Computed example of a mutant assay.
Amino acid sequence: MKRVRCPKCDNYIIFDETKYADGQSLVFQCPECGKEFGIRMGVSKLRERQKDENPDENADENGCGSIVVIENVFHYKQVLPLKMGDNIIGRYMKNAKVDLKIETNDPSMDISHCVINVSRDKKTGKLKYILRDGPSYTGTFVDNEILGDKERRVIYDGTLFTLGATSIILRAAEEDD
């Protein structure tokens, strides 16, 4: 089963892609807003999306690690790659100035919720991950403690942090010693 997103209201429409061939055009009508739109199987003009429904938790395409958004009632599991410098994390919205857009209906997650800064430690040369709140309306929690205003917290591989009702795990890059 595949999903397409309505370009007007962002509602998902689920369909069985095995019934169609690559290159075939399909027309959908959104049950929420009534918008009609078309897609072509096997072709995407939109932004890069998750390759499959069970992404690799240890994906590390930029060599800086990734975050794993845990599946819950608001969304499916997602793996988003980190880059060097600031990685702004927030809820997906068209044209939002966010680096890591989490596709969710979680109303407690802000469009720009928090930031993970990836840098090299000057003493060890290893990657260092620093989390700070956006600032957001609901806060960013690490180990069930809310980050204070302007507070920065060093996080490590496997650290669980929460944005609204969404839980995320840091997957640090594997580095050679």
Rank of each mutant, 00 (worst) to 15 (best):
residue 1 M to P: 00
residue 1 M to L: 00
residue 2 K to S: 14
residue 6 C to W: 05
residue 8 K to I: 02
residue 9 C to H: 13
residue 9 C to M: 10
residue 10 D to F: 03
residue 11 N to I: 02
residue 12 Y to E: 06
residue 13 I to A: 01
residue 13 I to R: 08
residue 22 D to P: 14
residue 23 G to N: 11
residue 24 Q to A: 10
residue 26 L to N: 07
residue 29 Q to V: 13
residue 29 Q to D: 06
residue 30 C to L: 06
residue 30 C to N: 12
residue 31 P to Y: 01
residue 33 C to Q: 12
residue 33 C to K: 12
residue 33 C to F: 05
residue 33 C to D: 11
residue 36 E to K: 15
residue 37 F to I: 00
residue 41 M to Q: 14
residue 44 S to G: 06
residue 48 E to K: 13
residue 49 R to W: 05
residue 50 Q to H: 08
residue 50 Q to K: 12
residue 50 Q to F: 04
residue 51 K to T: 03
residue 52 D to T: 08
residue 54 N to C: 01
residue 55 P to W: 13
residue 55 P to N: 13
residue 55 P to L: 06
residue 57 E to Q: 12
residue 58 N to A: 13
residue 61 E to W: 09
residue 64 C to T: 03
residue 66 S to R: 08
residue 68 V to M: 09
residue 68 V to N: 13
residue 70 I to G: 07
residue 71 E to R: 13
residue 72 N to V: 02
residue 73 V to S: 14
residue 74 F to C: 04
residue 76 Y to L: 10
residue 76 Y to T: 07
residue 80 L to F: 04
residue 81 P to T: 02
residue 82 L to I: 07
residue 88 I to K: 15
residue 89 I to D: 13
residue 89 I to Y: 08
residue 90 G to A: 06
residue 90 G to D: 04
residue 94 K to V: 00
residue 94 K to W: 00
residue 95 N to A: 04
residue 96 A to G: 04
residue 97 K to S: 12
residue 101 K to L: 09
residue 103 E to K: 04
residue 107 P to L: 05
residue 108 S to N: 13
residue 112 S to Y: 07
residue 115 V to W: 08
residue 117 N to E: 15
residue 122 K to S: 14
residue 122 K to A: 14
residue 124 T to H: 09
residue 128 K to F: 00
residue 128 K to A: 05
residue 131 L to W: 09
residue 131 L to F: 02
residue 134 G to P: 02
residue 135 P to W: 00
residue 136 S to P: 09
residue 137 Y to P: 06
residue 137 Y to G: 11
residue 138 T to M: 15
residue 139 G to F: 00
residue 144 N to K: 15
residue 147 L to E: 09
residue 149 D to L: 04
residue 150 K to W: 06
residue 150 K to M: 04
residue 152 R to Q: 14
residue 152 R to G: 04
residue 154 V to M: 10
residue 154 V to A: 13
residue 158 G to P: 01
residue 158 G to H: 03
residue 159 T to E: 02
residue 163 L to E: 09
residue 164 G to M: 02
residue 165 A to F: 10
residue 168 I to S: 06
residue 170 L to G: 09
residue 177 D to C: 02
residue 177 D to V: 01
